[in-house]
């Protein structure tokens, strides 16, 4: 019973924190640019606001437009059930491992791309094409990173990886782990659609990737798609901070230590969010056909990490 409660708690922490991370990134960027910017809680208000608006759909659209937003939202939410915040007992850990996680996330991307096509407009297909290309190119590096960590911890089960990385695996293989984390950073940027891969703020047809697909979405559909993208970003940051670089405080002895663990998790996620936001400000978005170079660079990093670990 207690494990179930803890698992639920972790699940809801990840869900609850995700709009905040998005808000925090936005706020950081605004502050550094010299403007005040919207409140860090603005994404929560946005979701509530969008939920209350009616949906406008094209008369060319089909039932894909109705079900796709639900799937896009529910897929990262399910994956959030895999991830530990402070304890290795998670809600969904019985039903899949880290390889399955990659493919579950791909299911969301698949339906998001279909949603782009469903309106019959010119932007949707453009966005889908770009998104699928970027997602495909990020995949090999992602699997390579996952293989490295899976071999180091001798398991693909996320909870097991969490447990053994929390030991001293990270310090046993510092070279391999560092390079793998660098590769994972590239994958995170690609999957979460941040600068230098994709600019989440723009609506210019030359540059937008993710935004082009959801251009025709409105009301509850847009809210669901936004939830999906927030949670997905949080998932990648959690993977980064909690699974593959578990420097932090994990103790489930009593309520105070749990509280403190959650607090540390919160701090780590905020730090990562701020780092990514600062990275976004200092880098220019890559030209679309340079993205393959960036992804390939990530892949080579992952490859070196694998090679230094295995050989």
């Amino acid at each position: 019973m207690q494990t179930l409660l803890m698992a639920l708690l972790q699940f809801f922490i990840i869900l609850g924190i995700s709009p905040f991370i998005a808000g925090l990134m936005q706020k950081t960027k605004s502050l550094i640019r010299g403007s005040i910017g919207p409140s860090v809680f603005q994404p929560y208000f946005n979701i509530v606001k969008l939920m209350k608006k009616e949906v406008v759909l094209s008369n060319q659209s089909s039932y894909i437009s109705i079900i796709a937003p639900y799937i896009v939202a529910v897929v990262p939410i399910t994956v959030a059930g895999f991830l530990p915040v402070f304890d290795s007992n998670t809600l969904m850990s019985f039903s899949g491992d880290i390889i399955a996680m990659v493919y579950i996330l791909a299911l969301g991307t698949f339906f998001l791309a279909l949603f782009g096509f469903d309106q019959g407009s010119s932007f949707g297909g453009l966005g889908s094409s770009r998104e699928m290309t970027v997602a495909s190119l990020a995949e090999p590096a992602f699997i390579m990173v996952i293989f490295t960590f899976a071999l180091q911890s001798n398991s693909t089960n996320i909870s097991h990886i969490f447990d053994s990385m929390r030991g001293d695996i990270f310090f046993n293989y510092p070279v391999s782990s560092t390079l793998a984390l660098m590769a994972l950073y590239f994958v995170t940027l690609a999957e979460a659609g941040r600068i230098p891969i994709d600019n989440p703020e723009t609506h210019l047809e030359l540059t937008m990737i993710h935004e082009a697909m959801i251009l025709d979405a409105s009301g509850r559909n847009l809210a669901l798609l936004e939830i999906g993208s927030f949670v997905k970003t949080t998932i990648f940051l959690t993977l980064f901070s909690n699974i593959f670089m578990p420097l932090g405080f994990y103790d489930t002895n009593n309520i105070w230590t749990i509280g403190f663990s959650i607090f540390i998790y919160f701090i780590k996620m905020s730090t990562l969010g701020v780092i990514i936001a600062i990275g976004e400000l200092t880098l220019a978005k890559l030209r679309y056909f340079r993205i393959s170079d960036a992804m390939m660079f990530g892949f080579v990093l992952a490859l070196i990490s694998m090679v230094t670990y295995r050989l």
Binding site: R290, S292, D293, M296, F297, F299, V300, L303, I304, V307
Partner: peptide, 12 residues
Amino acid sequence: ITNSLLVISAII
């Protein structure tokens, strides 16, 4: 560049 990186991975 992409092909160069492929060559690099082979070299490594």
